[in-house]
Simulated assay, not measured.
Amino acid sequence: MSRGPSEAFFVPVTVASTGLPGSRKIAALGRLLLRRPLLPLGVAVLLLVLSWSVWPGVFSHYDPLLGVPAHALQAPSVEHWFGTDHLGRDLYSRTVHGASLSLRATALAVLIALVAGIALGIVAGFFGGPLDAILMRLVEVLMAIPSLLLAMAVITVLGFGTVNIALAVGLSSVATFARLVRGEVLRWRTSTFVEAAAACGAGPWSIIRRHILAHAAGPVMALAALEFGSAVLSVSALSFLGFGAPPPQPEWGLLIAEGRNYMIAAWWYTTLPGVVVAAVVLATNQVARALQDRHGVRR
């Protein structure tokens, strides 16, 4: 039985369309949103805070370092969204401008932990032997020490300041990345395609770069997103304790520390910057968990 022109055209198009990559991606995105319904809100919060750090002047027209003493400790209003501090400075403006200092320190901390952890994990997992045993014992020692306590010890040696906080927080997180990367290297080192690459004459570093790291990138990036939220908390905590930038710099932790003496008379002084820090951490965790679902990572 012969088919008409329209029927002959219709059937192959229908069959081909069922396997479109775009359809599969949309379906996967839909399943992800069903599991993580708060993910769009988390992404929006992160984009907003990142915009604060890049273009703070666009989001606030007040000078974060200048205040009007007559306007001290004013409650949140249309003119001052977060109220004012004890020197009459606009607290919303200080929170917006503080995003640059806090997020820059956080990003540097995660970058340090990422680079050092990847290096340790690759060397330990790929080359193995006594070197693996020594490095893993070192990692276990680092993981046995609470990260905040270890960061405070590093700051005691390096001195105060935002950059030193970033170094301290980054060094305290190296062990987590090293353990994950080592596990991924051990997972993929004996794979068929790695053995085939070695049989074809590929060198160790070529195999690591082109094959092992390519497969480990997803879980490592998911962990980096999760550690970013932890680093925000650690940087803010160390700044709260006075280890960060000195006043009048508007670091988030310093803003919360300055407001603790006015909690009864001016609840907004500590509460609203603290809400921003909590929102950033929760939003980062939403993104990190979505990445972990995507790559099958469990921590």
Rank of each mutant, 00 (worst) to 15 (best):
A72R: 15
Q74M: 14
A75C: 13
S77A: 06
V78R: 07
E79N: 05
E79A: 06
H80G: 02
G83Q: 05
T84Y: 07
D85T: 00
D85A: 08
H86R: 12
H86N: 15
G88S: 11
R89G: 10
D90W: 02
D90M: 14
D90P: 13
L91A: 11
Y92H: 14
Y92M: 15
S93F: 10
R94M: 14
R94A: 09
R94C: 07
T95G: 13
T95N: 14
V96E: 05
V96Y: 00
V96G: 12
H97T: 02
S100T: 12
A105S: 14
A105Y: 02
A109M: 06
L111G: 05
A116P: 03
G117V: 00
L120E: 03
G121T: 03
I122Y: 01
V123K: 05
V123P: 00
A124P: 00
A124W: 02
L131R: 09
D132W: 06
I134E: 05
L135D: 08
M136E: 05
E140S: 12
M143P: 01
M143R: 09
A144V: 13
A144K: 08
A144H: 10
I145P: 04
I145C: 07
P146I: 02
S147K: 06
L148N: 04
M152F: 10
I155T: 04
I155Q: 12
T156L: 08
V157C: 08
V157K: 15
L158Q: 13
F160M: 10
G161N: 03
T162I: 15
N164G: 05
I165H: 04
I165M: 13
A166R: 08
V169N: 06
G170K: 05
L171F: 01
V174W: 00
V174D: 09
T176P: 02
T176F: 14
F177W: 00
F177D: 15
A178C: 04
A178K: 03
R179L: 12
